[in-house]
């Protein structure tokens, strides 16, 4: 293609009268200005749709129970500022064991992240770097698990947990989550892109595969460890149905279950508690994702290109 062609579609055939040209340019400028004003209006409207409910929930969590609805009906914009600032709701949920639920969830999330990364990196490495019989069939078997949501097998899985005697245990929360096809996929893609020479060089002195994996392969994969780590942690932090079934005890209770226990009975009047617990449950993943949105986005994108 001729590189001297202008980038944008402009009028290559000039109209004969000069005044028409300037009028045309002015018209097009006006159209593009109007369209960018409309674009920004649309973007701002959408941003408000995201931010207003989040902001309102957060603000309401710092308000006393009596004044939670004070500026909502009848509505005034003061609904978006705390009427009487207080931390009472937070004090109450923490006195009811919400801190324990946060700690439980952080613990389960951390253990799951470490185990999943180790085990799925191993599997991804095997799929990327070894030739063995049945490899393609096994790869399909791994990917097929993405098509059947675990929610549909939750009842037989629950029976399995109870057969193992794992109801109300850390194992019930962690172990079923460790075999993670998305993580295996991400690691396989990453290892497949690394030059073979690197692995050959590492094995020249006859080092066993185990040591090569721990000393060379795993440290190389730090970018995938970060991205899949975020996905795995968020998966556990936001998980609800499974922990509600297998570990409802206060000793193991996960944060979404704790929030739901406060929130499920909205006939109660402890609105401020729902607002406070929801704020914490939303804020942790937001704070985690915001500084790392680039990583998080790229990991979701990576898992989407299947």
């Amino acid at each position: 293609m001729n590189p001297s062609l202008p980038k944008r579609r402009t009028n290559l055939v000039l109209p004969p009268v000069a005044s028409q040209v300037t009028a045309g340019i002015r018209y097009r400028r006006a159209v593009s200005a109007a369209s960018s004003v409309l674009s920004y209006a649309g973007l701002i409207l959408l941003a408000l749709l995201v931010l207003v409910p989040l902001w309102w929930v957060m603000v309401s969590s710092f308000t006393t129970r009596e004044t939670v609805w004070a500026n909502v009906l009848p509505f005034s914009f003061r609904a978006f500022l705390p009427e009487e600032f207080t931390l009472a709701a937070y004090q109450e949920i923490f006195s009811r064991g919400f801190g324990r639920a946060i700690a439980n969830t952080l613990f389960v999330g951390a253990v799951t992240v470490v185990l999943t990364i180790l085990i799925c990196a191993m599997a991804g490495f095997a799929f990327a770097r070894f030739q063995f019989r049945g490899k393609n069939a096994l790869w399909v078997l791994v990917l097929l698990t993405l098509m059947v949501p675990s929610e549909l097998t939750v009842i037989p899985s629950y029976t399995l947990v109870s057969t193992f005697g794992w109801v109300n245990s850390w194992a019930a929360l962690v172990v079923p989550a460790v075999g993670n096809a998305t993580a295996i996929f991400l690691f396989r893609q990453f290892f497949a892109g690394i030059p073979q020479d690197l692995f050959d060089a590492a094995r020249v002195d006859g080092a066993p595969w185990g040591r090569v994996f721990l000393n060379i392969v795993l440290p190389l994969s730090r970018p995938v460890m970060v991205t899949s780590g975020i996905l795995i942690f968020l998966g556990q932090w936001n998980s609800f149905f499974w922990p509600m079934l297998v570990a409802p005890d206060a000793a193991y209770r996960q944060i979404q279950v704790a929030v739901a226990m406060i929130g499920v009975d909205q006939e109660l009047t402890s609105w401020d508690l729902i607002f406070a617990s929801s704020t914490i449950a939303a804020l942790v993943p937001l704070l985690l994702v915001l500084p790392m949105q680039r990583f998080y986005v790229s990991s979701i994108m990576g898992s989407g290109i299947k």
């Binding site: 959408l46 931010l51 309401s60 009906l73 998080y296």
Partner: peptide
Amino acid sequence: ILLLPIAISINISALAWGLALNAEYGLVNG
């Protein structure tokens, strides 16, 4: 901003909107 909801669990979104859309008190009705 527009991608923020992705990080939040479906429960929290359900609870928050459940409160905002509450028939008696909710923000949206206000």
